[in-house]
Design a protein around this nucleic acid. Structure first.
Lengths: 201, 201
DNA sequence: TATCTAATTAGATGAACATTAAATTTTATT
DNA sequence: AATAAAATTTAATGTTCATCTAATTAGATA
């Protein structure tokens, strides 16, 4: 269940030492000893915090000889927050207010789809802007069957009908929780798809 | 220091029971007993969690006779996350991606304003949709002087130039933190107004 | 005033967790 | 093979915290 993920993410950020680590890493990668020095704690403490940050996908690690350098996983930091929101405001838009803005939103989405896909339905490239990217991902994922389980090669093949770089896009599917992965099997997130980017805004 | 605030906010969300409370409140206000019942905990536990959520400004409370009803503080839930980001990445927006959607957002806002106000600037009614409501509230509040202090009758009179139901709208101002109230004196929230709903999207 | 209901407080318990020192592991260097 | 450097693990300690029960407070009603 995704509740655990959200809790885990916030736990990771619910400690001053860990926040300070992230702030330090925002200026560039650092190794454990240096972090320990700067924060006046022992290396063991850094190891401890690093594992929590790693489990929440907030940092990356790179080994060079004996030394492990930590760096921010900007991507997750920027996007995990919206997962909380999406969890809290899960329900679809209940009130029947279908006014102009909604129509414009629909138009905007169509424009984005037309803009980022070719006539024969191939993806040109992933949008940089979060909201547009979500629209694009949602468009692709909407072609999958709800409830059906897919193997990784199947998912790869599916994505390749849109774009060569299946690895990146597959990662985006997971990261934005359009899909779940459980022991090598992929499945669509049962939540309403449209609610995703509409509720974010 | 703002680090504490950020840590406090994430601590508030770093517990499954509290997340569940927020999810329940997303469907509308509930009192302590009902929450306790739905979550299979004692009322004392709810009191405990409510105080944490309150300290992080994630919920509002309303008293009716013996009963206290809790509701979401949507505004804080949506915006506190970006405070974390701002703390970690002190620098401003680097990417120059100014594409179509932003322009459409501006157009959309204008459309909402035109839609909910008459030609002579009166408010027809408050939108039900959060985003639109924020636009409408911001539009009104932008006519007030930043830094100036207002008495309650002054605020009421001001609101009545837009709409008869000053009580509701005044409450909305406070609830969505466009204004502060401190011993019967009202004042504009010094935060940038535009940042408010733009950051939501 | 007495009574009812909802909420809060106080104190207790057990689990989770941040931190450290000391021992161990990993990887590279001589 | 021996040594050095960085990271990790282990075990211990003290703190924070979620939860409960029982007692108390606050507000409303009869």
């Amino acid at each position: 269940m995704q509740l655990d993920k959200v809790v885990q993410y916030h736990k990771a950020l619910a400690d001053p030492t860990r926040i300070k680590i992230l702030i330090l890493l925002a200026d560039g990668e650092l190794n454990g000893q240096v972090l320990a020095e700067k924060l006046s704690v022992t290396p063991a403490t850094i190891t401890h915090h690093a594992s929590k940050l790693r489990e929440a996908s907030l940092i990356n690690e790179r080994r060079d000889k004996n030394t492990i350098y930590f760096s921010l996983n900007d991507y997750f930091i920027k996007n995990s927050a919206s997962a909380t929101e999406a969890l809290i405001y899960r329900r679809t838009n209940t009130k029947g207010e279908t006014e102009m803005l909604d129509e414009q939103q629909l138009k905007a989405r169509d424009a984005v789809i037309r803009n980022f896909f070719t006539e024969d339905g191939r993806l040109k490239h992933l949008p940089g802007q979060l909201k547009k990217k979500l629209m694009v991902l949602e468009h692709m994922v909407s072609k999958l069957d709800k409830g059906k389980k897919y193997t990784e090669p199947e998912i790869n093949a599916f994505i390749k009908t849109f774009h060569e770089d299946f690895a990146t896009i597959r990662r985006e599917f997971i990261m934005h929780q359009f899909m779940f992965r459980e022991n090598e099997i992929y499945e669509l997130n049962p939540a309403e798809m449209w609610a995703r980017w509409e509720n974010l805004s």
